[in-house]
Design a protein around this nucleic acid. Structure first.
Lengths: 138, 138
DNA sequence: ATAAACCCTATAAAATAAATAGGGTTTATA
DNA sequence: TATAAACCCTATTTATTTTATAGGGTTTAT
């Protein structure tokens, strides 16, 4: 399951996508719309901005706005950013690899081999779904 | 990511699959093979037995053994048993459904719609990989 | 009888996720 | 130029979940 952080990030991106022609959007408005803690959401938006998905304007009249096209924001990226690995085991993660301590030889491990396949097929799904798909369903 | 519980369950099932013609297998032997705590593994094997994947024999000379064909043990079942939902959000889980508190109308939620698709495609992958696939990779 | 081995429930420890706190900086505007 | 609005940043606390341990109970071959 996704963490609440990632779920809230998706909600925020959706909201920003729906209001992309209205200039900046306040954290406050997003937080209120979904009943999310203002401060918790603030941290999430900060991460999304640092990762290059959002822009922000400081000071009075400021706020956040999308700086990428919804079609260029795949689920896989958002999940990795906020939740970490998509792979089911550390030993098959492309971005967060770690060996499994109980495994003598990764290349002789049947679990490893199957999980590589699962990872590749799962990734295909998550790379092909983007914020644009979410927006077109609203 | 899978919990260690699920990962250990897969190791145990793999071990039992490899030794299926040798009668019962001791918890101790599996725990030693993978460096897993005996007691932690015991709980896992207990769950697998209660769920109908393993049989056990009590008393001296007892142990565990597979009572299903490896091809009839899909990853999806093991993951659901030990880790819970496969869906990425509670609102799209088939077996562990819960509404999202922040969502006014699930049927108008673009995230929900996309996640239903992700769930179905992911499930297809995990239902089509079984212990047999793991064993053939060892 | 005895020791080996699984059975079962409860609890503790560790790790992670979720939320909160509190002040800092920037900027439009009166 | 004072003010208030709004984002910026780091640290800490709280809650939840995961991982591991504890301790005895029951069954069974020898």
């Amino acid at each position: 399951m996704l963490s609440k952080k990632t779920k809230y990030a998706l909600h925020a991106l959706t909201y920003l996508g729906k209001h992309k022609d209205e200039g900046t959007v306040l954290i406050h408005d997003i937080a209120e719309e979904y009943g999310i803690s203002h401060k918790f959401l603030e941290n999430i938006l900060l991460e999304l901005r640092k990762a290059g998905y959002l822009g922000s304007k400081k000071g009075k009249g400021g706020g956040y706005y999308l700086i990428k096209e919804p079609k260029d924001i795949p689920l896989s990226r958002i999940i990795r950013l906020l939740d970490g690995p998509i792979a089911l085991l550390p030993c098959v993660s492309l971005n967060y690899y770690e060996p499994c301590s109980e495994c003598k030889d990764e290349f002789k491990c049947g679990i490893n081999k199957v999980m590589v396949q699962v990872r590749d097929e799962t990734l295909k799904i998550l790379e092909n779904k983007s914020l644009a798909d979410i927006l077109s369903g609203e």
